[in-house]
Simulated scan of single mutants.
Amino acid sequence: MSGAFATADVAGLVRELGARADPARLRCDVEFLAEGPRSRTRAPEAMRRAEAYAARELAAAGWRTERQPFDVRCRLGSTDRRGHQALPLEFRLHRRLAGANLLARLPGAPCRGTVVVGAHLDTVEASPGADDNASGVAALLEAARLLAGLPQPPPVTLAVLDMEELGLIGARYAARRLRRGRRAVGMICLESVGFFTDEPGSQLMPLGFEAAFPDVAAEVRAGGLRGDFTLVVHRRATDAAARLWCLAAGAGRTPLACVTLRDPRPLGPLGALAGVVVPPLAHLDRSDHAAFWNVGIPALMLTSTANFRNSHYHQPTDTPDTLDYPRLAAVAAATAATAVFWPRSVRAR
C-alpha cells in the first residue's frame, strides 16, 4: 500500500482477522511455551523445545521458515538473572554466545520492502515467562495464521528472536542482516503484550517519566492509572504506523485501548547513545526493536509495560493463568493488519 492508509480498509481487515483470532489457541501456545524457563545458556533443552514448537506452528500455517544460527564473541550485553526490577544498566561482556533466530515468509511474498514482526523466545532464569515473552511469541504465531489466510501473501517477515534477555543479541544479528539491501522497511516488536488489569492505580511509571513525557503521563493518569492499554512506543519515522496500529486496535471485536509514546531520539547510533545518558529514555530501549532503531530501521514496540504493571515480571509466578487472552487475540489481529497496511511512505531517518 502506498501513501496514507484507508480507515475503512483497515477496519474491514481487522474485523475479518479478529473474527478468526482464537483466544483459546493463543492460550495453548502460551501454556506450551511457558512450561518453564527457556534459555540457550540456562535451560537449553527447554529452549530447543520451544524453538521447535514455533517452527512447527509456522510451518503448519504455511510459512517457509529459515533457521539462522549465529555465533558471536566479545559482545556487550546484559544479565539474564532473575529479578523483579528491569536491569537495563547491568552490563555484561559475553565472551561467546551461540544461538539462532527463526525467520519466516509466506511463499510468493516479496523479500524486499518487508515488514518484520518480531518477538523474543528466551526468558530470564527461574521464570516461565508467560508474559515475558510467551505472550509475544503466541501473538506472532496467531498473526502468522491470520496472514496466511489472506488472498495475496503480504510482504511480511516473522522473526522469533533469541537472547533478548542477554542484550538483544539475536535481534542485533537479525537487524544487521535485514538492513543489507534495504530489505526491511519497518519492524513491529511484540514485548510482554498479554497482561492487562482494570484495577485503578495498577499502572506505574518510571522515575523521571512524568517530566520527560508529561502528555503521556497525563493521559495515563486521566485513565485512573489502570493497566488496561497497550503502550505503542515509536519515533518520528513511525508516527503513521503507530496511528495505524491504534486504529486497528480500536476496530476489532475486542477493542483495545492504546497509548502512544513518541521517543524524541533519531534513528541510528546517536539515538542509542542518548538512551545511555538519559535514564527515562533507556526504558524505551528494553526490547528487540531497539536493535532495529540502532541500524536505522523504523520500528514500533508494543507492550503492556512489563514491571510497571505486572508484579510477576521476571518471577516464577509469570504463568499462563495471569494473562488476558481475548485482549491478546486483539493484539495479534491489530498487529497483522498493521503489517499489511504499513505505510510504504515510511523511510529511515
Rank of each mutant, 00 (worst) to 15 (best):
S2H: 12
G3M: 03
A4T: 08
A8D: 15
A19Q: 15
A19W: 10
D22S: 15
L26D: 05
C28M: 10
D29Q: 14
L33Q: 10
E35T: 12
T41N: 03
P44Q: 10
A46V: 07
A54D: 07
A55S: 12
R56Y: 00
R67T: 14
P69E: 11
G77V: 11
D80A: 11
E90K: 10
F91E: 13
R92Y: 00
R95P: 03
A98R: 13
G99C: 09
L102Y: 11
R105D: 02
G108L: 12
A109M: 08
V117R: 05
V117E: 13
D122K: 09
A126I: 00
A126P: 00
D132Y: 01
A134C: 11
S135F: 07
G136A: 09
L147C: 07
A148T: 03
A148S: 14
P151C: 04
V160G: 10
M163P: 00
E164C: 15
E165D: 13
G167L: 09
I169E: 06
G170W: 02
G170C: 08
R176V: 11
R176P: 00
R177K: 10
C189D: 15
V193D: 08
D198K: 10
E199D: 07
G201S: 04
G201E: 03
S202I: 03
Q203K: 07
L204H: 06
P206R: 01
L207Q: 13
A217I: 08
A218P: 04
V220T: 09
R221D: 09
R221T: 10
G223A: 06
G224T: 11
T230F: 09
L231M: 14
R235T: 12
R235E: 14
A241K: 04
L247P: 06
T260N: 01
T260Y: 05
G268V: 01
G275P: 12
V276P: 00
V278S: 06
H283C: 04
S287M: 13
P298Q: 08
P298F: 09
L300T: 03
T303K: 01
T305K: 00
N310K: 02
H312C: 13
H314L: 00
T317K: 00
T317F: 12
D321L: 05
T322F: 01
D324A: 05
A329F: 06
T335C: 09
